[in-house]
């Protein structure tokens, strides 16, 4: 792994005030993620992983500590600056895909570039096509989101996350809505992206997924309880091959 840290968290804490009680969603969380890592962040619900994801995704700012994304300090950034940062450096993949309805794959993938004025219409389209081809949807460019299966929709969402060449891809339970076969297909795709040098953070509560990542960070009650390098990365493609074949 290279020395360059895409993500560096230093004593991040995040408190929410609910009524007259303060909830500590994150307590002194510190870790770094280097370029090209595939990190799973695991934890049960209430462990603070959603808050961590929001923080990593620059959707939320920490109460204390420092967060550097690609060398840029995020903590004191305003809303608009963070929006621009998300647009340039982060690719989100959500559990429920969040594609625009009645919109073609290509238009969905183009969307992040629509908010980046430096892209011309033709460059935008070219990028979107490239991105869709790279997730294996080169033959479905003009399919509308409601004409696609869950797996295909998630591929479109991944293509959308890739289109801006982000510093990091943030996946939030990206396989949570899919059956195990399709889940594995998506994991194969993530592993391929990893092998191409992409930095991926995959937030999940499913422990199975950690065997496919290069590192696993576990959260409990807002604290990091383990941060282990996976020296025996399983191949999702092999696992997929072992799954019983569907009849259809």
């Amino acid at each position: 792994m290279t020395n360059k840290h895409v993500i560096r968290l230093e004593n991040i804490s995040r408190n929410f005030v609910v009524g007259d009680e303060t909830v500590h969603a994150l307590r002194n969380v510190s870790f770094s993620i280097g370029e090209g890592e595939f990190v799973t962040i695991m934890g049960t619900s209430g462990s603070g992983k959603s808050t961590l994801l929001n923080t990593l995704g620059c959707l939320d700012t920490p109460t204390g500590g420092e967060y550097y994304l690609d060398g840029v300090s995020v903590r004191l950034m305003g809303k608009n600056a963070r929006a621009t940062l998300r647009n340039r450096k982060i690719g989100f993949v959500f559990q429920s895909y969040n594609l625009l309805p009645k919109t073609t794959a290509i238009e969905n993938v183009e969307l992040p570039l629509m908010y980046n004025p430096s892209y011309s219409a033709s460059a935008r389209r070219r990028k979107a096509v490239e991105s869709l081809v790279s997730v294996g949807l080169g033959d479905r460019l003009n399919h509308k989101s409601n004409q696609m299966s869950g797996g295909q929709m998630q591929r479109v969402a991944i293509a959308r996350a890739l289109v801006n060449d982000p510093a990091v891809i943030l996946a939030d339970e990206a396989t949570g809505n899919l059956d195990s076969r399709t889940s594995h297909e998506i994991l194969v795709l993530f592993q391929r992206l990893h092998s191409q040098g992409r930095t991926i953070i995959f937030v999940t509560h499913n422990p199975e997924i950690s065997q496919y990542s290069s590192r696993n960070i576990q959260l409990k009650d807002g604290r990091v309880i383990s941060n282990t390098i996976n020296n025996h990365i399983q191949s999702a493609a092999e696992a997929l091959a072992k799954l019983p074949v569907d009849n259809d």
């Binding site: 995704g57 929006a83 992040p112 908010y115």
Partner: peptide, 16 residues
């Protein structure tokens, strides 16, 4: 609302 949330998370500013 979800569409708006998505647009914001991929970089749309409030004014957009």
């Amino acid at each position: 609302t979800r569409e708006i949330g998505l647009r914001m998370s991929i970089g749309a500013k409030g004014r957009d």
